[in-house]
């Protein structure tokens, strides 16, 4: 790792000021992606700004909206009784990110800011009509996720929390890569009184996206059977050493079927 200076500000405003000072300054939350990247010397920072003392790990439920602080770890989310009571799908999702040690330290804010195309949280935030609160503004999920590892966050903007709507029913199913545990395909299905939202991670060439064909089919009837005739096009899906695009197209429908079954059985 190249040399760096580590700073631990005690407020998010101070963190944002430090970040704005230079392009060579970066923030770190859990560091589950950033630290391995720094270790490999794939990135270099002058000042690393740790957010652990900024008090961003609160989880709160107010008038039907769940708000999760950016520094809440995957462990915190997976062990939250409030979240489990209102949206068990989110608990299941957080319980299967990476491995135990990643879950103990990795955070929801870090995962969203990194926007790894195979990460689980972007699918949940997209499906649950998420709003990302930053040091500058509020951003809707569909605007927030831009492309692979790219969000609309400005260089000196930091995520403070994410707010999610409580669905009537929801479930997340992923087909994990057996080595990395990242989603080769992950599908989050959320049923709201007025609409069905289905978000797909791990598959799209531009990262997380909503699958309108599956949403439309489920709007007519929220059952796994309503997906039995769907064949998705492989266009716009990733092909890599783990799976070809057409295999991913098949997996999206299959994960959606499983998610609908699980959501319906609660």
């Amino acid at each position: 790792m190249y040399s760096l200076t580590y700073i631990k500000p005690d407020s998010i405003d101070k963190a944002a000021s430090l970040l704005a000072e230079s392009d060579e300054h970066k923030v770190v939350s859990g560091g589950m992606t950033l630290l391995p990247t720094l270790k490999q010397r794939l990135a270099r920072v002058e000042k690393l700004i740790g957010l652990e003392d900024c008090g961003l790990n609160n989880i709160a439920l107010n008038s039907g909206i769940l708000t999760i602080g950016a520094m809440a770890s995957h462990y915190d989310v997976s062990h939250s009784a409030d979240i489990n009571a209102k949206n068990p799908a989110l608990v299941e999702l957080a319980s299967h990110i990476g491995d135990r040690q990643v879950r103990n330290r990795g955070t929801i804010g870090g995962s969203l800011a990194n926007n790894d195309p195979s990460a689980c949280y972007p699918a949940a935030v997209m499906a649950l009509k998420g709003t990302i609160l930053t040091t500058k503004r509020e951003i809707e999920a569909e605007e927030f996720f831009v492309d692979l590892f790219e969000t609309c966050l400005e260089e000196d903007e930091i995520i403070k929390s994410v707010s999610l709507l409580i669905p009537e029913a929801a479930a997340y199913e992923k087909f994990p890569n057996p080595a990395s545990r990242y989603a080769m395909v992950g599908v989050f299905v959320a049923k709201f009184p007025s609409e069905i939202r289905v978000a797909v991670t791990g598959a799209g060439e531009n990262g997380v996206y909503r699958c309108s064909e599956i949403e439309h089919a489920l709007s007519n009837s929220f059952s796994a059977d309503s997906l039995s005739d769907i064949t998705l096009s492989a266009e716009g899906l990733m092909s890599d050493i783990h799976a070809e695009a057409d295999y991913r197209a098949h997996l999206i429908v299959e994960m959606a079927r499983r998610a609908v079954n699980k959501a319906s059985s609660r």
Binding site: Y6, G31, L35, K39, L48, Y75, D99, Q101, N104, R105
Partner: peptide, 21 residues
């Protein structure tokens, strides 16, 4: 995972945390 230790009671990979943290 050969470097797993417990920090404040939780298991962590000590190669993925800075000493200053």
């Amino acid at each position: 995972g050969a470097c797993v230790i417990h920090v404040n009671g939780k298991s962590l990979k000590s190669c993925t945390m800075l000493a200053v943290q």
